[in-house]
Amino acid sequence: MPRMCRPVHLGEPESEPVPVAGCDVCGALAEQRAKAHAAGDKSKATDCNVEMRRHSHPKAVRV
């Protein structure tokens, strides 16, 4: 019986997000991510990356 599933093609992994300068939330997440990397906790580091990407920043008010 032939296989019915298609092969999976994965792209290059995304680079880690860069924290926005002056943002306390991004700074805290970057610090947690660094500690997770140091401890070998890739799951926690990935969680921090996801939170950092989803974190919204207020748009600059134009005058």
Rank of each mutant, 00 (worst) to 15 (best):
M1S: 08
P2A: 01
P2E: 00
R3G: 03
M4A: 11
M4N: 11
M4W: 07
M4K: 09
C5D: 10
R6E: 06
R6W: 05
R6P: 07
R6V: 08
P7I: 06
P7N: 11
P7D: 09
P7H: 08
P7T: 15
V8H: 10
H9G: 07
H9P: 04
G11Y: 07
G11V: 07
E14L: 11
E14D: 14
E14H: 09
S15W: 08
S15P: 13
S15R: 13
P17T: 07
V18I: 12
V18P: 02
V20F: 00
A21L: 12
A21H: 13
A21K: 12
G22E: 04
G22Y: 02
D24G: 15
V25P: 01
V25C: 10
C26Y: 01
A28C: 14
L29G: 01
L29S: 01
L29I: 10
A30R: 07
A30E: 12
A30I: 02
E31R: 14
R33K: 12
R33A: 06
R33D: 07
A34V: 09
K35F: 14
H37M: 12
H37R: 09
H37A: 08
H37Q: 12
H37C: 10
A38W: 09
A38T: 15
G40D: 13
K42I: 14
S43H: 05
K44N: 10
A45V: 08
T46M: 11
E51M: 09
E51W: 03
R53F: 02
R54M: 03
R54F: 06
H55K: 05
S56C: 15
S56N: 14
P58N: 04
P58V: 01
P58M: 06
K59D: 10
K59S: 08
A60F: 02
R62I: 02
R62Y: 09
R62F: 07
V63P: 09
V63E: 14
V63T: 13
